[in-house]
Each structure stands twice: as structure tokens, then as C-alpha cells.
Amino acid sequence: MKISVIMLTYNHGKYIEKAVQSVCAQQGDFQLEIIIGDDCSTDNTAEVIDELAAKHKEIKIFRPEKNIGMHANLKKCLSLAEGDYISMCEGDDWYISPYKLQMQMEFLEKNKDCVMCSHSYIEYNQKEDKYSTINYQQDYNGGGIYCFEQLVTEYKWTNFTTYMYRKEVINKLPEFIWELNGADYSFNMHCAVYGNLGIIKEPLSVYRAGIGQWSSLSLIKQQQDTLDFAYISKEHFHKYYNGKYDDIFDKRIEKSIKNLKRVKAKAFKNKIRRFFKIKEK
């Protein structure tokens, strides 16, 4: 078996070596391929990965002539992957178990109904220098197995670094997913059309929070973007699948509207509290 690990990076000079070394340290009964997509970084990322590639023959580097963005970078790297399974590792995240890839491959070999496998992870808040474990294994379908409807309506997605996919499912991805803002979410939703997502209970990687675009958004903006994404996803899935999943997306939209109202109400209450505290002073 061969596993291809896709690593997207842009200005990750401070973090990329740790990410790459954690992938190179993987052990198991498989051949490893690492494809790094460096989207014209302006820091020292290129120098760091060139040095790493000189030491590790399993590393392949893709560099576009100009910055092309995450979606195009991911699409190109996937087209270069030769593995039977495709895994992810963001350039600022890292694996913490040397058996992460082996465990996910074995899970997919055993669970033929699953087309992708994820796991719990540790979130590292860089601003606060704080670690916390995010356990995504839930009691669905006997524990840790999610179908398409559950994934969409409950929004049970982990971060990209936790995922492994069957290559044959990746080959079925429609072009429209690259037009959506949430490439990772739309990517996973489409894969879930062909089978389930399995979750391994153990945390096997670290997600670096607080430095990305999403982490910098307010809770209201995050909820608004989630709602907008649900509307756009429904539109695209409606066209591609002839309305087959409209009811499922309607449930997601209804929940997103409620979540947005709840977050706005909480923000308003906090604003009022701050106003009266200032007035008392």
C-alpha cells in the first residue's frame, strides 16, 4: 500500500519543519509519499522545505509560478498523488503519533463502508500557549461512524490534518467544490456521498489555532459564514444531484440560523453589561 500525504503551506517558515518531520517519522506497513504545495511563500518556507527534501527522498514539492490560493494548490497536489490513500497535514500542524497513518489505513481496510477516516486531536492555542483535547468520537451508528446526513446537519467535521481518504473517492470529486469558499468542508461533504466517515478516538495530531483566517473571525462572523456556506452548498448540491439532498441542507440551514441568532443575542447582552459597568464607574 502507498499513502500520499498532502501538505499545503504558505508562509509557514516557523512551523513547516515540525510538520514535515512528524510525517517523515510515520511507521507502518506502507510506502510514504509527501507532496508539499508551497503557494509562493514570501518568508523562508521554500528554503526550509528544500533542505528537508534533500534529506528525505519521499518528499515532492509543487511550486506554482504565482500565488494560486488554497483551492487550486490542493487540487494540483491531489492530481500529483499516487497513493492508494490520501492523508492531509497542514503546514502549521503536526502529527503526534508515529502510527497515525497506519491506524487510519487499518481502519479503512477493516471498515469498507467508510470512505474517509478522521480522529480526535489536540488544539494548540498559540496566543495563550494552551493545549486542549478535542474528542470527536460520538455515539452515532454504534460509535464513531457518521453518515452524510449526520455530517451535514450536525456539522461534525474535524480539521483537515486529521483526515485520510480512499483515493478512488478523491477521483470522483466534481469541479464545483473548488468554487466554494470552504474547500475542506465541501471536499468532505462530497466524499460522504459515497460512504461514511469513521472517527478514531485517540488524538493523533495537533491543530495550531489562533493564527489562521478562521480563528481571527468573531463568533458572529463565523456563524454568518457557516450559514452562507450552507446556502451555497445546497445550491451546488441541488444542481449536481438533482435536489436529492435538499431536505438535509434545509435542516443544516435551520440550525445555522438558530445558532446565528443565539450568538447575536449573547453578544448584545454582553454589550449591555459592559455599557452599564462603564456607566457605574
Score class of each variant (00 low, 15 high):
73 N>D: 08
58 E>H: 07
101 L>D: 09
50 D>S: 15
36 I>A: 02
52 L>F: 05
79 S>Q: 10
113 D>Y: 02
38 D>R: 04
150 Q>Y: 08
29 D>K: 07
69 G>Q: 01
96 I>S: 02
70 M>L: 12
43 D>I: 15
51 E>L: 05
145 I>K: 15
142 G>I: 12
172 K>W: 13
171 N>E: 14
38 D>E: 12
61 I>K: 08
99 Y>L: 14
29 D>Y: 00
138 Q>L: 11
114 C>F: 05
168 E>A: 12
141 N>L: 09
39 D>R: 07
71 H>A: 12
146 Y>V: 03
107 F>S: 13
80 L>Q: 02
134 I>F: 12
154 E>M: 14
106 E>N: 01
165 Y>R: 03
161 T>E: 06
94 W>V: 00
135 N>Y: 09
84 D>E: 12
119 H>C: 12
93 D>R: 12
114 C>V: 09
131 Y>V: 00
51 E>T: 11
99 Y>C: 08
85 Y>E: 03
173 L>R: 02
28 G>Y: 03
154 E>R: 15
154 E>A: 15
67 N>Q: 13
53 A>G: 14
162 T>H: 05
139 D>W: 08
113 D>P: 03
87 S>R: 05
49 I>E: 04
29 D>W: 07
123 E>R: 06
52 L>Q: 10
145 I>C: 11
125 N>Y: 10
142 G>N: 14
125 N>E: 14
152 V>P: 09
106 E>K: 03
77 C>S: 04
132 S>I: 01
102 Q>H: 04
123 E>G: 13
132 S>H: 05
102 Q>I: 03
165 Y>T: 05
104 Q>S: 09
162 T>G: 13
165 Y>N: 10
51 E>W: 02
47 E>A: 13
30 F>K: 05
62 F>V: 02
73 N>M: 00
144 G>H: 06
106 E>W: 02
28 G>N: 01
111 N>L: 12
81 A>R: 00
101 L>V: 13
124 Y>K: 00
120 S>I: 10
139 D>A: 13
86 I>A: 03
155 Y>E: 15
126 Q>E: 15
151 L>Y: 07
28 G>F: 00
134 I>W: 08
65 E>S: 10
148 F>G: 15
148 F>D: 14
147 C>W: 01
50 D>Q: 14
119 H>F: 05
61 I>R: 07
89 C>N: 14
137 Q>R: 14
167 K>R: 11
77 C>E: 00
49 I>T: 09
51 E>I: 07
74 L>E: 05
29 D>R: 07
115 V>Q: 02
37 G>C: 01
150 Q>I: 11
65 E>G: 13
29 D>V: 08
161 T>V: 03
80 L>F: 01
152 V>D: 10
83 G>P: 06
95 Y>P: 06
78 L>E: 00
153 T>C: 13
